[in-house]
């Protein structure tokens, strides 16, 4: 049933929100500590359990996936709700933060790949696979 998927999603989200609030209270911060992330972990666990016990029906999947598919439009609506007029007063912070983050990450990728040593490139993999196919036939 489709509603079981929607209900499962709702239960995970509610439990995550509760645990996040509870964690916040335990740690003495007035905030929801990682509630969305906790809910995601629970949903993944629920999916694995349902799949193992053969209870993952297509209706259930649809109930969850429908909401997952709506997430970009919902994020667009969220963006359209923000107080952008007053955010603009912070000027170029957005440009500085984003550009610096991207530059640092690109450098990290380069360092990673240099340290990792040589590996087969995509072209070499395809050439090898083509050769193997030829040898078989």
């Amino acid at each position: 049933m489709t509603i079981s998927g929607v209900a499962l999603l709702a239960i995970c989200t509610l439990l995550g929100a509760f645990l996040g609030d509870w964690l916040g209270a335990m740690l003495g911060v007035k905030a929801n500590v990682g509630g969305v992330g906790i809910a995601m972990v629970m949903l993944i666990a629920a999916r694995l359990w349902l799949a193992r016990t053969k209870r993952l029906s297509s209706g259930l999947k649809f109930g969850v996936q429908f909401w997952g598919a709506l997430y970009i439009p919902i994020v667009v609506a969220m963006a359209a709700n923000q107080n952008v007029v007053s955010a603009m007063e912070s000027g170029p912070l957005v440009l500085v933060a984003a550009t610096a983050a991207v530059v640092v990450c690109f450098i990290a990728v380069a360092v990673f790949n240099r340290l990792g040593g040589p590996v087969e490139t995509m072209d070499e993999i395809e050439a090898r696979e083509a050769l193997e196919r030829e040898l078989i036939t």
Binding site: L9, A10, C12, T13, G16, A17, G35, V36, A39, M40, V41, L43, I44, R47, L48, K61, V64, Q65, F66, W67, G68, L70, Y71, P73, I74, V75, V76, A77, M78, A79, A80, N81
Partner: peptide, 23 residues
Amino acid sequence: IGLMGGGMLRDFAIVATAFEVDV
């Protein structure tokens, strides 16, 4: 737009994306 992009539906939809994660 306030309801659609509000905290409730936003968290709901974002949690749903975890369903696709292939462990």
